[in-house]
Simulated scan of single mutants.
Amino acid sequence: MSIPPRPIRPLWVIVGFVLSGLGFVGLILPGFPGTVWFVLAAAAFARGDPRWEAWLLSRPVVGQLVDDYRSGRGMPLRAKWFACVCIVLAVGLSLGRIPVLVGQVAWMMLGVLGVVYIVWRVPTKRG
């Protein structure tokens, strides 16, 4: 990943902190994934300031999550189940709030694609 010009780097650091904040919220709130935000935050920090990326990766839980993703080890089976159940619940509980049928179908398809992606494309971490 190439480092952007110097004036843009602080923006990447700000984006990294916002994404990190969402990731930490995801560690606390059930049903709100944290890993994806940390992976994106690490990428943003890498573009903005590698010292912040190193700081994020040195966090006890976060560093392992990002490392597992980057190395292709994937997610534990329990986490995959949890993610899929959360997608199904989120889509099911919010479907009635979408006023038009086309939007409901699109929302359902997005949920199905999310589950399919997790089941078939995300590797299952062993051990």
Rank of each mutant, 00 (worst) to 15 (best):
M1V: 07
S2A: 15
P4V: 03
P5E: 03
R6S: 07
R6K: 11
P7S: 00
P7L: 01
I8K: 10
R9M: 08
R9S: 07
P10K: 03
L11Y: 11
V13Q: 05
I14E: 03
V15A: 15
G16F: 10
G16C: 09
V18P: 02
S20G: 14
F24M: 15
L29A: 14
L29R: 06
P30Y: 09
G31E: 12
G31C: 11
G31R: 10
F32T: 01
P33T: 05
P33I: 07
G34H: 09
T35C: 13
T35D: 13
F38V: 02
V39A: 04
L40A: 12
L40S: 03
A42T: 04
F45M: 03
A46R: 10
D49Q: 12
W52K: 02
R59I: 10
V61M: 13
G63Y: 01
Q64N: 07
D67Y: 11
D68H: 14
Y69W: 14
R73L: 09
R73H: 11
R73P: 00
G74F: 07
G74V: 02
A79S: 15
A79Y: 01
K80D: 01
K80Y: 06
F82A: 13
V85D: 08
V85G: 12
I87C: 09
V88F: 14
V88G: 09
V91F: 11
G92Y: 07
L95V: 10
L95N: 03
R97P: 00
I98A: 12
Q104N: 11
Q104M: 11
V105D: 03
M109A: 15
L110Y: 04
G111I: 10
L113W: 11
V116I: 15
I118N: 04
I118S: 05
V119G: 04
R121S: 05
R126P: 01
R126M: 12
G127R: 07
